[in-house]
């Protein structure tokens, strides 16, 4: 077998893995690295369940080839909390009951994180469009949108401490 060696930073850990060249970055994260937080809901970029941040950009990991990550930086849901301190979005999702089955939650958290890093004070409409690439079939999005707006307010009020225990 002729596999490619990839070195990258994943959630601040220098990580190496072997992959096939036509393997998706999603499969590599899940099967080669063992990070199963990103989920495959469609495999075609239509549901957002595999959202991760590659080199600072929110992407669907199912649409990237694993070797593209070589030398890059990846953030996944597993790296969102700072040790025991949850990211305000995580806290807000819990408090607002924004997850039902929870399978789409990692993708939503990554999309919302990317949004708030670019736009700390989004309107409801901006939130809705920013997460439109993430499908949720359980919640009707109401509580997800509330959680994102709530976390944004929290982060504006408390930008440094941000995360809470």
């Amino acid at each position: 077998m002729n596999r490619t060696h990839v070195t990258c930073m994943i959630n601040d850990d220098e990580t190496e893995f072997l992959c096939d060249n036509d393997e998706s970055l999603l499969d590599a994260l899940r099967d080669e690295v063992g990070l199963t937080g990103a989920k495959e809901g469609c495999g075609t970029g239509d549901c957002g369940a595999c959202s991760i941040i590659l080199n600072g950009q929110l992407i669907c990991a199912c649409l990237a080839f694993a070797p593209e990550a070589n030398g890059g930086t990846i953030e996944t849901v597993e790296g969102m909390a700072d040790g025991d301190r949850l990211h305000p979005l995580q806290t807000s999702f819990l408090e607002e009951a924004s997850l039902q089955c929870g399978v789409c939650t990692p993708g939503f958290l990554m999309a919302a994180k990317a949004l708030l890093e670019n736009n700390p004070d989004p309107t409801e409409t901006e939130v809705r469009y920013a997460i439109a690439g993430n499908l949720c079939r359980c919640t009707g999005y109401d509580k997800i949108v509330r959680a994102v707006l709530g976390a944004a307010a929290q982060m504006r009020k408390n930008p440094i401490e941000g995360a809470r225990p």
Partner: peptide
């Protein structure tokens, strides 16, 4: 909830 917001919850394909 905690496991579901930090990616640890194990779904079938995991």
């Amino acid at each position: 909830g905690l496991e579901k917001v930090n990616g640890k919850a194990r779904f079938a394909a995991d």
